[in-house]
């Protein structure tokens, strides 16, 4: 257990060791992306061409 306090800890290590944050981002990012994707799909559906407006 020598000099553990002296080890330089990178921001990547802090980020990847934060399992709570990773879990939140893993859910939140896909939640947001799927909502956007669904909204894009719904918005892109055209009206039936069989109906002459």
């Amino acid at each position: 257990m020598d000099n553990e306090g002296d080890v330089k800890v990178s921001y990547w290590e802090v980020f990847l060791d934060d399992v709570g944050l990773l879990f939140f981002l893993g859910a939140a990012i896909y939640f947001a992306l799927y909502i956007v994707w669904g909204a894009m799909e719904i918005a892109s559906v055209s009206y039936s061409p069989l109906i002459v407006k």
């Binding site: 553990e4 080890v7 330089k8 800890v9 990178s10 290590e13």
Partner: peptide, 13 residues
Amino acid sequence: MSIQAIKPGWWQK
């Protein structure tokens, strides 16, 4: 998350 705590500094290894 591992069973045993990882020693700080693993990112540099």
